[in-house]
């Protein structure tokens, strides 16, 4: 807070992101991106190791513990949060028109959800077959 050139200037505090739910959601989405990257790196490292060993069995054994389960549940929640909030924003970037009428943004988001589910099913099928 300061007086500059006869104006009262209000500075944002470091806790600005606690001021509004929308700011908080934004910060969480930003934070979860760290998890997304970290888990992607972790997964690639593990897959790389599994490849050396010749099978995924060792990898699954290593993760088959209460701690592994808890960590994965947390990671799953975080990834879901990130993915859902991210997909919900896609209609802002992808704006489609049918003649001069805008295509319902929910359809754009919906298409993303469908794509996400399909990709997940394919990956699950590849892993679990």
């Amino acid at each position: 807070m300061a007086l500059i050139d006869r104006h009262y200037v209000r500075k944002l505090p470091a806790t600005w992101w606690l001021r509004k739910p929308t700011y908080l959601v934004f910060m969480l989405r930003e934070l979860t991106s760290v998890f997304v990257v970290a888990y992607a790196v972790f997964l690639m490292v593990m897959i790389g190791r599994a490849d050396e060993a010749g099978s995924f069995a060792g990898l699954f054994d290593a993760l088959d513990s209460p701690l592994g389960l808890v960590v994965h549940l947390i990671v799953l929640a975080v990834l879901l949060f990130h993915t859902i909030t991210w997909i919900n924003l896609t209609p802002k970037v992808v704006v489609l028109f049918r003649d001069d009428e805008q295509v319902d943004p929910r359809l754009v988001a919906g298409a993303n959800y469908v794509g996400w589910v399909v990709a997940s099913v394919v990956v699950a099928w590849l892993v679990l077959r």
């Binding site: 929308t22 700011y23 934004f26 930003e30 924003l89 802002k92």
Partner: peptide, 16 residues
């Protein structure tokens, strides 16, 4: 822009 998105939420004329 880091895409907080609050500008769109508060816009009174739906400018987005």
């Amino acid at each position: 822009c880091t895409y907080v998105g609050d500008c769109t939420r508060v816009c009174p004329k739906e400018v987005d």
